[in-house]
Write a protein that binds this DNA or RNA. Structure first.
Length: 282
DNA sequence: ACTAAAGCCTGGCTGC
DNA sequence: TGCAGCCAGGCTTTAG
């Protein structure tokens, strides 16, 4: 389930192999992958085009092309790129293949069909629906403590839900949102505008530290060169997570059992002792 | 302008 | 052993 660090890892990997590679032929075998365009029009627009640079905005990959188009790709839950020999057989859930001019193919594989590709003019990327409303990059200069504090003050939503809103705080998914709240000792159901300034500061620092550590881990741990999904190959990434998916296990700080609740339609993990409940509502 | 919730998807797991 | 049903969750859409 790629969050910002995993997408960054994928972007860096693609940046090493794609620039100056030309697409000789593109094939899309699942129409919903490319949304508004027909697969035929989409593939025709990619034919003979060369990759220039690979970027990222939030969890979106930006594959810039010599045609002054940009292929915006979101991996969602299970999307991944595969870098295979030209004649490799497509896997069960491979929905697009780009045959390159070096005897290789870049395949897009997505078990759960949530991933999306959107081909737009590069000059219009910032105005697209998926990019337009995103919050500042969490590791960039615009994501200041002042920005986060103002964002919290303006919302009455539960902290956990606010952290998942990409238009407010960018880059966190369910895993890192839960980890950041644990690090800052904030109960996930605390209304955002009731988080005290000192804890907001802790959260601000935790968000950046967690994302930076995850990106660092992704850049040093060995990956499968054929599978570009941001996950780690031969290593257990889960070991770095201290609360996520650890219901019933002892808190690393106080040894109280980690609790699990539902927020939205997804699981939230936290320590009921370290992360004090907000002043009651209902 | 804001928040809440359903829906999209497949496969792994649980419990009967 | 088989199978129904739950669960995973990023994001869009719809409703309030």
């Amino acid at each position: 389930m790629p969050e910002l660090p995993e997408v960054e890892s994928v972007a860096r990997h693609l940046q090493r192999i794609l620039p100056n590679r030309t697409i000789e032929q593109a094939i899309v075998t699942r129409a919903t992958l490319v949304e508004e365009a027909t697969p035929e029009a989409f593939c025709a627009r990619l034919q003979g085009v060369t990759f220039t640079e690979i970027g990222r905005r939030g969890k979106h990959l930006l594959l810039h092309l010599s045609s002054n188009d940009t292929l915006i790709t979101h991996l969602r839950m299970t999307g991944r790129f595969l870098y295979l020999d030209r004649d490799a057989t497509p896997l069960k859930h491979t929905h697009a293949r780009f045959f390159l001019d070096n005897g290789k193919q870049l395949a897009f594989d997505d078990q759960r069909h949530f991933g999306r590709m959107h081909l737009v003019k590069s000059s219009e990327v910032a105005d697209t629906r998926e990019i337009r409303d995103l919050a500042p990059e969490p590791l960039g200069p615009e994501f200041t403590f002042g920005y986060l504090k103002q964002t919290l003050v303006k919302s009455s939503r539960d902290m956990k839900e606010l952290l998942l809103d990409q238009t407010r705080v960018l880059g966190l998914g369910n895993i890192y949102a839960v980890e950041a709240l644990f690090a800052a000792r904030i109960h996930p159901e605390t209304p955002a505008n009731l988080v005290p300034g000192r804890k907001a500061k802790d959260l601000y620092e935790a968000i950046q530290a967690i994302l930076e550590a995850a990106i660092e881990a992704g850049s040093t741990i060995q990956t499968d060169p054929e599978v570009i999904d941001g996950s780690y190959f031969g290593n257990s990434f889960e070991e770095a997570l201290v609360v996520y998916d650890r219901e019933g296990e002892p808190c690393i700080r106080c040894e109280s059992p980690i609790a699990r609740i539902r927020q939205g339609q997804r699981s939230t993990y936290f320590c009921p002792k370290c992360q004090k409940a907000p002043k009651k509502k209902d």
